[in-house]
Computed example of a mutant assay.
Amino acid sequence: MENQLLWHNFYQEINQPDEQIDLAKASLYYAQVEYPDLDVQKYLNVLDAIASEIKPQLPAKLYPLKVIQTINYHLFDCLKFQGNSQDYYNPDNSFLNRVIELKTGIPITLSVVYLAIAKRLDFPMVGIGMPGHFLIRPQFENAGIFVDAFNRGEILFKQDCQAKLNQIYQQAKLDPSLLIPVSNKHILARMLNNLKFIYLRQQNLDKALAIISGILNLFPENALEIRDRGLLYYQMNRWHEAVVDLEYFLKIFPDSKDAPTIKMLLEKMI
């Protein structure tokens, strides 16, 4: 029950049409699970203030490259936001309040800061869910440019995205679908998924379980998250809950390659 209460504000924010979801606000709401005393409005005010500082610097004609260069100068040169390459897997890199406070983060959280600023400047931008490295781009037809918020707002073209992908996955081919804008819900799920894997690496099962709750708020029928929650329940000896999740997983994904292992676990518990 307590966990459900912690996620209440987050659920309220995401339970509306995707284009109406305030990405920064939703990100701060999920951070309240880790930081229950977090004042969401305080951090939204900081984003408002940053945008207000940038607005007078914008050129009279809002050419995309000029706007991006102006945002970049203020965020990365003046305010000193930067990618946290030294401590990439620190959970704080995934909490927007800490990213705003410390002015450091990972590609997706720095992108959310950037998107929030751009939105306040009436300069529409969208998230690009490229594997291994989240990017953003202006929301204009045939804009042709992408922005890497992790690398000081580096401006990329399509061939640069291919090179970026090659750095992460050797010989990977950049399918055009990888550069299609993703929804706000998908951005939030990816942020939470990062946290989930950090907590699993740390063997912090309670926190990983809480994060899966957030992902399932976004996508209730996500079979793999239902499976993972069931496996966590199993590890935590919460067998009744594990059985419910793992049986449901088999019902909605009977042909999964994990099915034989899941069936063995269920035989042990039932």
Rank of each mutant, 00 (worst) to 15 (best):
H133C: 01
E141W: 00
S111G: 13
A149Y: 00
S27M: 12
A49Y: 08
P36I: 10
K251F: 12
Y29N: 11
D87W: 02
L62D: 04
K164H: 05
M125V: 11
Y43A: 04
D18G: 02
V67W: 07
I212F: 08
T261L: 10
Y73P: 00
K268E: 15
L218K: 04
L28A: 08
E101S: 13
L96P: 01
Y30T: 09
P36Q: 11
L266V: 07
G105D: 07
N97A: 11
Q202A: 13
V126C: 02
P91F: 06
R120D: 09
A242E: 09
F249A: 10
Q16Y: 07
L47F: 02
K207P: 00
Q235F: 12
L195Y: 03
T261R: 10
N3M: 13
L58A: 09
F253G: 02
A143N: 02
P124L: 10
K42P: 01
H186E: 14
G127Q: 06
F81K: 09
Q162V: 04
V243C: 09
L205D: 13
Q41A: 13
A26E: 10
D258K: 12
L75I: 10
K164C: 08
A242S: 15
E34T: 14
E34G: 03
L179I: 11
E241M: 10
E247W: 03
C161M: 05
L192G: 03
K251E: 15
Q159F: 03
L266W: 01
Q162P: 01
F95Q: 05
V147Y: 00
L115A: 09
F249W: 09
D245W: 08
G129H: 00
K173Q: 14
N194V: 05
K185Y: 00
L115I: 14
A149F: 00
